[in-house]
């Protein structure tokens, strides 16, 4: 069962990152963090960007960890690598709005 779980770990991480970013966005608006400035970007935006970067880093590391040894024919190992790459690209793409869109309106 573990090899199967490993082969979706990238996607699971995407789901975690996506939910976390959405939750932080909702929470920041409820608690007014977008109005708290930190010099440059607001507190809300700083936390969102930090979460984004952390998630992308973890996923990139996962891709590296799960890279298949050259010439392998182990289906689940290739699948695990593929899903971590999909997870990475999806996280990069779905999280992009944290950089510029208005957070609470």
């Amino acid at each position: 069962m573990t090899p199967l779980l490993r082969s979706v770990s990238g996607l699971i991480l995407w789901a975690v990152a996506f939910s976390a970013i959405y939750a932080i966005q909702g929470l920041s608006c409820a608690l007014g963090w977008d109005a708290i400035g930190l010099g440059g970007p607001s507190l809300a935006r700083s936390i969102l960007i930090a979460t984004y970067i952390v998630s992308v880093t973890i996923l990139a590391w996962l891709c590296w960890r799960l890279r298949p040894s050259s010439g392998t024919r182990d289906f689940l190992a290739i699948l695990a690598f593929a899903s971590s790459v999909i997870g990475l690209l999806s996280t990069i793409y779905t999280g992009l709005p944290v950089f510029w869109l208005s957070i609470c309106s």
Binding site: F18, Y22, Q25, Y93, T94, L96, P97, L101, C104
Partner: peptide, 15 residues
């Protein structure tokens, strides 16, 4: 719903 949240879901929809 705020723009940013909509944009997350719009991105997922295209994905």
């Amino acid at each position: 719903i705020p723009h940013m949240a909509l944009a997350f879901f719009s991105a997922a929809s295209t994905l």
